[in-house]
Computed example of a mutant assay.
Amino acid sequence: MKMAPIIRQMQQVKDRIVPYLVHTGQHYDQTMKDTFFQQLGIPEPDCDLGVGSGTHAVQTANVMLRFEPVLDEVKPIAVLVVGDVNSTIACGLVAVKKNIPLIHVEAGLRSFDREMPEEINRILTDQISDLLFTTERAAETNLVKEGIALERIKFSGNVMIDTLLANCRQADSLSQILQKYGVDCLVSEKKYALLTMHRPSNVDDVETLSRLVSVIVDISKKLPVVFPVHPRTQQKLREAGLLSQLAEQDIVLLPPVGYLEILGLMQSAQLVLTDSGGLQEETTALGVPCVTLRENTERPITVTEGTNTIVGSDPSKIMMCVDDIMATGGKSGRVPEYWDGRAAVRIVEEILQHYQLAG
């Protein structure tokens, strides 16, 4: 979702930039990968490293080992990475060790929770980047405090919102999605909660996962819940013996869905329960109330200006927030600055100038 608009904008200036797309394979579910590439119009990667699963160390090391020969062959003028996954820091480290400038899109976001692997990836990637593009102005403050030179920081806006705005009209409707998966239920437009959950802090600890399942079941007694289940989350639920609890309630369990489907589900939901950073941003852009099942967020603008409320994994706080949304419609937010669908345009224009590629 982050790379699609950047690639598309680079293709508009292909006389000056030739993008070479590398898919590391960190997100290794082939069906999910194929669906997202197809729906977002991303060209087939020039290279697929096929890294797959593993511990953080194994995954990061394998990306580095497989990415280095690609750089030796392609000899790029710069490497652009997005977000905060293991692939981000792995590819970044290989690039700078070979004296290739690094560009980081979505820089400067901080949860200030170093127990999150993503936080370590964010901090380290920013420290080694040559050019840093931010989604919100507070990110610049974070970077300056960490010693990043101001001239390297560029406020571009949010490429995730570029993708969202480009696809809103063609997003699948709720009825299309339910029909596709053969789900017979009474869920109606604006009369359900959308749930997504995949972070290790929520699904790896059985006690936390049990607590969340319990409150989800309670919510479903008031409002139907539609739950596309991430493969890893499904495995953890099955291992903990919790899948049956969800299946017996007014909870629609779906397999992993594509981008247009999750977008359609968000647009039609009364509220969203999630631990995803991306969904926090997308619900703010759509004006849909979001209940974040985490103790913190690296996207504070979704709370201060958007529709997001942080509740953690405390069942009483979660239920109180859901009850308030059902009674009042939830907090009203506004779309943040530069979340206007043109972030990729600003990014590519800056890259052309920074590396003196302008015609």
Rank of each mutant, 00 (worst) to 15 (best):
D130R: 13
R137E: 15
L194C: 04
F37K: 03
K154S: 12
R66C: 10
P231D: 05
D275T: 13
Q12Y: 09
E248N: 04
R334E: 09
S244M: 11
S316R: 11
M160T: 11
T134Y: 00
G108M: 10
Q12V: 02
K97P: 09
E140I: 04
P300W: 00
L109C: 08
T55F: 10
S173W: 07
Y192F: 14
I262W: 03
Q26K: 08
P255Q: 04
K331L: 11
E305F: 02
P43G: 07
G92K: 06
P300K: 08
L194P: 01
N202F: 03
G108N: 00
Q30W: 08
M160W: 07
F36D: 04
S276M: 06
V226G: 00
L21F: 13
I42Y: 11
L212C: 05
I120M: 05
V217W: 12
A4K: 11
V144C: 03
A90H: 12
T297E: 03
L260P: 06
I216A: 09
L273I: 08
D126M: 00
D84V: 09
Q270D: 01
E68M: 11
L209A: 09
L93F: 01
S220R: 03
I148H: 12
L143E: 05
P19F: 04
N308H: 05
L150F: 09
Q127E: 14
E337A: 02
I251S: 07
D113S: 12
P200G: 05
V203M: 04
V303E: 07
D324P: 06
A269V: 12
T304V: 02
S53V: 11
V335P: 02
H198A: 10
A138I: 15
Q59C: 13
Q12L: 10
L124N: 13
H56W: 00
